[in-house]
Structure formats: structure tokens, C-alpha cells
Simulated assay, not measured.
Amino acid sequence: MTYEVQGRTAIITLNREEKRNSFSQRIFDGLRKAVDRLTDDVRAVVIAGNGNHFCAGLDLSEHQHVPPFESVLRSRAAHRLFDDIQNCGRPVISALHGAVIGGGLELACSTHIRVADKTAFYQLPEGRRGIFVGGGGSVRIAKIIGVSRLTELMLTGRKLDAETGERLGLSHYLVEPGEALKTALEIAENVAGNAQISNYLMLNALAQIDEMPDGPGLFTEALAQALTLTTDDAKAGIEAFLQKRDIRF
């Protein structure tokens, strides 16, 4: 795992190229430490994979003889890690290429913006291995593509190519081979220039509103709007708009 900061963007890179960046305990611990390293001056995060693949999922060689209770604890640790990525208060962008399989897809779906190049392919082969997803896929992936499609993908284990993945919402951007990280960094630089409170509320309020009935959701929207409109950043942003000039907060 590598961690570096460029400007206001932290870049976290899975670095187990010889195993297609599959999730070993070492990779998991490295990702945990990298997320915990995020400082207040980091305004956006990019997660990428070294080599030819983003992440080929769980390293099953480490899970052949795991007792049931330990397996539950490992799954819950993955849930906490991916929750922390989704709820870190900053936009997180994933740069996807090659294999985005199993736990790799669960990791990608915990990020807010997903950029895939045309080499990317998606797969949930757990059913063909006699196991079940354990990194939050039954919730996060289902919210993106629907329970019916998730069920079919888990039952059949079939691969989805990059174009199909974009059509289903597994990626937001589809770029030429080798361009995913470059595009992800450009997006990170762009969104890092938003007002911090606006980014925070877009990442957190929208997720909460999605879980609410319409009435409470609309009330929460009104509160979020009021919180942003009364800030100095909002005043500066409105003034810049009226004066037809750009602004970076």
C-alpha cells in the first residue's frame, strides 16, 4: 500500500501487483492505516491499484480454515473500513482498471465517484466459490444496480465489461485504457475546490436523505441548504457568480 499527497488530494494505491491487488490481511491493514492518516488539509482522496488491475477481491488462500466467529469479525472489520471511506467527509474517487472483482467491487462502491478505463471488468464470483459477499456488497452494490441484478451476478458469476458496468452505474466515467488515474486526479482537483461544507453535506446529507421517507428527507434538505447559504463561503461563491469570475475555496 502506498500513500502520497499531491496538493489537496491524497492518493492511496493498492500495491500487490503479483496477486492482482487481492485483499490479503496486509493489504487490508495498509488500507486501514492509509484512511486513518487522512489529515484536515486533504480535501479529496483517490484510490487506485498498481499494475494491470484495480483489485481482484479477497485472497481466498487466507480464508480456507477460518472459524465462523473469526470470519464474522473479519467481515465486520471490512464493513467499518468501507464505511469510513464512504463517510470520511471528503470526496473519494476510485480509478478502476482491469479486474474489479468481489471485494474490489465492494471497495469501489464505497467511493463516491468511480472512473473506469475500458480494460475494467466486474465480477462477483462468490457463489461459484461456495461463499457470500462480506464487504458490504449486499447493501452498496444492490443500491447501485438493484437486488435483482445483484442476485443474478452472484448466482452466475459472469463478467461485466467496462461498457456494461458504466451503463449499470458501476462507473460514472469511462475513459481510454491507462487514463483512469489521470482522470480521477483531475476530478479530485476539481471537487477539492468546492466549499468544504458543501462537499461535506453533499456526501453525508444525501446519503441520509436516501434512507428517509420523503417528508423528513425534504426537511433535512431545507436544513442543509440553510447551513450552506449562511456561510461566508456561500457569500463569496454568490459574489463570484454575480461578478462572472471563478472561485476556489
Score class of each variant (00 low, 15 high):
Glu4Lys: 11
Val5Asp: 03
Val5Ser: 08
Gln6Leu: 10
Gly7Met: 11
Gly7Lys: 13
Arg8Cys: 05
Thr9Pro: 11
Thr9Trp: 09
Ala10Glu: 07
Thr13Pro: 01
Thr13Ser: 05
Arg20Asp: 14
Asn21Pro: 04
Ser22Arg: 13
Ser22Ile: 06
Gln25Val: 00
Gln25Cys: 00
Ile27Leu: 12
Lys33Gln: 15
Ala34Trp: 14
Asp36Asn: 11
Asp41Ala: 11
Arg43Asp: 08
Asn50Ile: 08
Asn52Pro: 02
His53Gln: 08
Phe54Gln: 13
Phe54Ala: 12
Leu58Met: 11
His63Trp: 13
Gln64Ile: 01
His65Met: 09
Leu73Ser: 12
Arg74Leu: 13
Arg74Tyr: 11
Arg74Ala: 09
His79Leu: 14
Arg80Leu: 15
Arg80Thr: 15
Gln86Val: 00
Gln86Ser: 08
Gln86Trp: 02
Cys88Arg: 02
Gly89Glu: 04
Pro91Phe: 08
Ile93Lys: 05
Ser94Ala: 14
His97Ile: 00
His97Gln: 08
Gly98Met: 02
Ala99Phe: 05
Gly102Lys: 02
Leu107Thr: 12
Ala108Cys: 09
Cys109Trp: 07
Val115Gln: 00
Lys118Ser: 13
Ala120His: 06
Gln123Gly: 11
Gln123Ser: 15
Leu124Asp: 01
Gly134Cys: 01
Gly134Gln: 03
Gly136Gln: 08
Arg140His: 01
Arg140Tyr: 02
Ala142His: 10
Gly146Thr: 01
Gly146Met: 03
Val147Lys: 12
Ser148His: 09
Ser148Trp: 07
Arg149Phe: 08
Leu150Asn: 02
Leu153Arg: 04
Leu155Ser: 15
Thr156Asp: 10
Lys159Val: 12
Ala162Met: 03
Ala162Leu: 04
Thr164Asn: 05
Glu166Gly: 01
Arg167Asp: 12
Gly169Tyr: 01
Ser171Val: 03
His172Tyr: 09
Tyr173Pro: 01
Leu174Tyr: 03
Leu174Ala: 06
Val175Asp: 04
Glu176Lys: 00
Pro177Ala: 09
Gly178Cys: 07
Leu181Ser: 10
Thr183Trp: 00
Glu186Cys: 09
Ile187Trp: 01
Ala192Ser: 15
Gln196Asn: 00
Leu201Lys: 13
Met202Leu: 15
Met202Ser: 15
Asn204Thr: 13
Asn204Gln: 11
Ala205Ser: 09
Ile209Thr: 07
Asp210Gln: 14
Asp214Ala: 04
Phe219Asn: 09
Thr220Tyr: 09
Thr220Lys: 12
Thr220Val: 09
Glu221Phe: 12
Leu223Ile: 11
Gln225Lys: 04
Phe241Leu: 14
